[in-house]
């Protein structure tokens, strides 16, 4: 036997199916709570600023990853920015073809060192380009929950 042993019939191959029965519940955190509350309540985007390192973090962070200082200086940032890079998504998570391709972009927000990954809307894929100026389109207040999806998408200005 040893390593030379092989199953003689394919039906002898046995497999067991299972999963991990958990749901993850993520808190937004100290900085995240304030960021998403401002989106929920005021359609506003905020960042935190490290004066020492001259960095404005969006999404905001509780601390500066460079100098490790606690960041207490909050700044409201514009809901406009430019397309830093983008992709056109043709398949869903399971590999099925999407009827309408979606445009995903990393939007660098004006005056900050950060930005958001989000969808682009009100634009044809062929018209999108790196450097394009865009703005956030917020959902109606009634639909907002304090989530990144409270922004429907970014659209060209």
């Amino acid at each position: 036997m040893g390593l030379l042993y092989r199953l003689s019939k394919p039906e002898q191959a046995i497999a067991w199916e299972g999963d991990m029965p958990i749901t993850s519940r993520y808190t937004m955190g100290i900085a995240g709570e304030r960021f998403f509350r401002a989106i929920l309540d005021d359609e506003a985007l905020w960042g935190t600023c490290c004066p020492e390192c001259d960095v404005v973090y969006v999404p905001p962070r509780l601390y500066c990853e460079r100098c490790f200082a606690q960041l207490d200086e909050w700044v409201e940032v514009p809901n406009t920015g430019y397309v830093y890079t983008y992709t056109i998504v043709h398949v869903d998570m399971d590999g099925n073809t999407l009827e309408d391709p979606r445009i995903m972009a990393y939007v660098r927000l004006e005056g900050t060192d950060g930005g958001l990954v989000h969808f682009l809307g009100e634009v044809d894929p062929e018209d999108v380009g790196i450097g394009m100026l865009v703005e956030a389109v917020f959902k109606d207040k009634a639909e907002r929950k304090g989530s990144i999806n409270d922004i429907a998408y970014f659209r060209p200005i």
Binding site: T27, G29, I30, G32, L62, Y63, R66, C67, F68
Partner: peptide, 26 residues
């Protein structure tokens, strides 16, 4: 039992306290 902090915020809280305790910086 349940922290509001994210995991990385918890990590920073502990790490910054440890650095402070020996007067070091990153």
């Amino acid at each position: 039992r349940r922290a509001q902090e994210t995991g990385k915020e918890l990590a920073w809280e502990a790490a910054s306290k440890a650095l402070e305790s020996c007067e070091m910086t990153l």
